[in-house]
């Protein structure tokens, strides 16, 4: 978009939307939308409070752990599926099912099995992230150039060498693509898990604010959350872009 010959930066329209928000808030059209400026001042005063920091650290810990397990389990499983036909045929139907299944429905089961705490949130996060990571790692391995594999074998690479020195690196762009989508899904998973459990992290915070009708606080936390999620997904897209030259060298 260009205006008077200047190219407007991407996302700059969000400033305009913030102004619209401010206007709606100032006009006091609805109790549920306080002015943007009020939300921002609340945000600044809210950030250093122990309640917020605690929710953030609990969420970050659950999110980090969940993503860690999804990656550590997902990538090797995906690579093995890409290499072994029998494993692939046994597992692929299930991976596809869980990829498109509404996993939200499984949270109540996790709650009765693992309690109303961090463990359930972590498992929910992993469940949201892992399937796409597996599927992409598998796709990455399956499209590795045959001559690359033959090259490694002709130079006498052991299976272990081949795994770490060829398969992993050759499939890296797809693997990272899967991790990026997985992480975005994990953000949604961790929040859904906390919302349904509603006594940990941001779930508890939202419960508190909505029961006391603290709209400015609610919106402030939402903005922080959405901002973090967006920044994370952009950062991962940037990282993915950095290794995309791998893909081009494949021809």
């Amino acid at each position: 978009m260009t205006l008077f010959g200047y190219k407007l930066p991407a996302l700059s329209s969000l400033l305009l939307w913030a102004m619209v928000w401010e206007l709606v808030g100032q006009l006091q059209l609805t109790f549920f939308v306080p002015p943007f400026s009020e939300v921002m001042t609340t945000l600044v005063s809210l950030l250093p409070t122990p309640a917020f920091l605690q929710a953030l650290s609990v969420t970050a810990a659950a999110f980090g752990t969940g993503v860690f397990f999804a990656i550590v389990i997902g990538i090797p499983v995906g690579i093995l599926m890409g290499k072994s036909r029998i494993l692939d045929e046994l597992l692929l139907p299930w991976v596809n099912i869980f990829l498109s299944a509404p996993l939200t429905a499984l949270v109540p089961v996790l709650m009765v099995l693992f309690g109303f705490g961090a463990r359930t949130v972590i498992i929910t996060t992993s469940l949201f992230a892992i399937w796409i990571i597996i599927l992409n790692a598998r796709a990455g391995v399956r499209q590795i150039n045959r001559s690359l594999v033959e090259m490694a074998r002709s130079f006498g690479a052991s299976p272990l060498d081949a795994f770490f020195k060829v398969y992993f690196w050759a499939a890296l762009p797809e693997i990272l693509g899967g991790v990026r989508i997985g992480v975005i899904r994990a953000v949604k998973g961790v929040i859904i898990g906390q919302l349904l459990i509603s006594i940990v992290g941001f779930g508890a915070l939202f419960e508190l604010y909505s029961s006391k009708f603290l709209m400015a606080e609610f919106w402030a936390v939402l903005i922080v959350l959405f901002g973090l999620a967006f920044a994370l997904s952009e950062f991962l897209a940037y990282l993915e872009g950095k290794v995309s030259y791998y893909a081009s060298s494949r021809g």
């Binding site: 329209s13 609805t30 549920f32 953000v187 929040i191 419960e207 939402l222 994370l232």
Partner: peptide
């Protein structure tokens, strides 16, 4: 320019967090 950023952010954001507000409204 006007609308795409909203949906790009929505795509990445955990929109489930909006549920309590929707219930209030």
């Amino acid at each position: 320019w006007l609308f795409a950023p909203i949906f790009i952010v929505m795509q990445a954001a955990p929109l489930a967090a909006l549920i309590p507000i929707l219930v209030m409204i």
